[in-house]
Simulated scan of single mutants.
Amino acid sequence: MQPTPSPRSQGDSSRSRAEAIYAQLKDDLFGLRLMPGDRFSEGELAERMRASRTPVRQALHRLEREGHVEVVSRSGWRVRAFDFTRLEELYEICIVLELEAVRRLGERPAAEVSPLLDQLGRTWLVAPERRLKDGQAVSRLDEGFHRQLLDAAGNGEMARLHADVSERIRVVRRLDFTQAARVTLAYEEHGKILGALLTKRNEDAQRLLKAHLEVSKAEVRTITLHMLHSARPRDLPARQG
């Protein structure tokens, strides 16, 4: 006779399932498989995830607290529309944190920061023919570039705050990299920032980094419905908002 699972083990299993569903939905949001305005029900998600409604509801409420989705009926949900003012404010936080990180890097001995800069250089300081062309792959490298600057600054709380903010603007960043021109600019602008850091031109590095981030911030206001739906993976049907 099989032992009956304890209430604690059942609770742990439910939390684990909710965590997995949360991660999958977040990946759908950041991968543009779920777009602003898309509607869905808990039942639809439960069927797709092959799960009960309880962990689905737990995952959705967590995403609701983070500002990604909103309730539209008793069991209906919708991906929240972009709040452009909020996105610009998040970019401003990134600018403050990253400029401080670069300032700190400029004050550290070259021997301490060279391993990081050499690693970043192998990614960004490459000949044009060796550059990646896939926008989504470059967007992930771009996020890693900015994250590594914060990690190297040596303040764990700054790095954690930056990681949280970066996650909240990830969809916009990925939309930005659907444009081939932005992929090319990413290599050129990151290369200039690294060049200034490698030659200990700290003020130039901060100026170049700020200009780089300001361009991305300005792109927020250019997002259109057409851009969103053009970026949706082609094998998915469009949902009605």
Rank of each mutant, 00 (worst) to 15 (best):
H229V: 10
L25G: 14
E112I: 01
N155G: 09
V102E: 07
G67Y: 01
L149H: 08
I95R: 04
D204M: 05
R17D: 08
R80Q: 05
A231P: 02
T184Q: 11
A101I: 08
F30W: 14
D151A: 12
I193T: 03
A110Q: 06
F40K: 04
R80H: 01
L29I: 09
G135H: 01
L150Q: 12
L87Q: 02
G37I: 03
H61L: 14
R201P: 00
S73F: 09
L34V: 05
Y22A: 10
L117D: 00
P36Q: 00
P115A: 00
P115H: 03
Q58Y: 04
L236N: 08
A238I: 15
F177P: 01
Y91Q: 01
R62H: 06
T224S: 12
L125I: 12
T123P: 05
G154V: 08
R33L: 09
S6I: 07
S230P: 10
S14G: 07
R33P: 02
E189T: 14
F177Y: 10
V69I: 09
W124Y: 04
K26W: 08
S14Q: 11
L90F: 13
L32I: 05
L150T: 05
L150I: 02
V138A: 00
H68N: 10
L198T: 06
R232C: 01
V165A: 10
R50T: 15
G156W: 14
L141A: 05
S139R: 02
D164F: 14
P3C: 03
N202E: 13
F177L: 03
M49G: 03
V220Y: 07
S9Y: 13
V113E: 00
